[in-house]
């Protein structure tokens, strides 16, 4: 088999996002910032979000990591930008399901778009954490947001 299998994981879109990440940086007027680390490799991702009217008005990521974690973060920002908080959380759930090899609805898969391609990481169990890092960070931010909203 050898390196041929790598093509499943390192698709062109993923390589492109790793090489030319979208929405990289930090938001000056963020409503929330979350930094998460992958303790096994030392990778760090910091996600900053600006929520307006229960909508993700702006979203950026910073930090350093491997191709998968960087591409996954970049793709996340493109998919979840301008989504409602509620829909974003559904899509994060769908993404989590995909990368652990579970099926998701056609609607979610469509809406995840290129990010759904990261789902092939399910075939590379050691790398699932890399793919999940940014999404987990945003999920925690939206959790916090939800928690305060109910206060």
């Amino acid at each position: 088999m050898g390196l041929a299998k790598l093509n499943q994981l390192y698709r062109e879109v993923i390589l492109d996002h790793a090489q030319h990440p979208r929405n990289r940086g930090e938001l000056a007027d963020a409503t929330g910032v979350m930094e998460l680390r992958n303790p096994t490799c030392g990778d760090v991702i910091s996600v900053s979000v600006q929520i307006d009217d229960d909508k993700i008005a702006d979203l950026k990521f910073a930090g350093s990591g491997c191709t998968i974690s960087q591409a996954s973060a970049s793709l996340m920002t493109t998919v979840l930008m301008n989504q409602s908080v509620e829909r974003a959380r559904e899509l994060i759930m769908a993404f989590s399901a995909l990368i652990t090899g579970e099926e998701v609805s056609e609607k979610d898969d469509d809406e995840l778009g290129d990010a759904a391609l990261v789902g092939s990481v399910a075939e590379f169990p050691a790398r699932i954490k890399c793919a999940a890092l940014a999404w987990h960070a945003l999920d925690e931010l939206l959790d916090e947001k939800g928690a305060t909203a109910h206060d």
Partner: peptide
């Protein structure tokens, strides 16, 4: 190259 990507590549070999 990030060492994670290197290790995944080597694992495929």
């Amino acid at each position: 190259l990030h060492p994670h990507d290197v290790a995944t590549g080597l694992d495929m070999e």
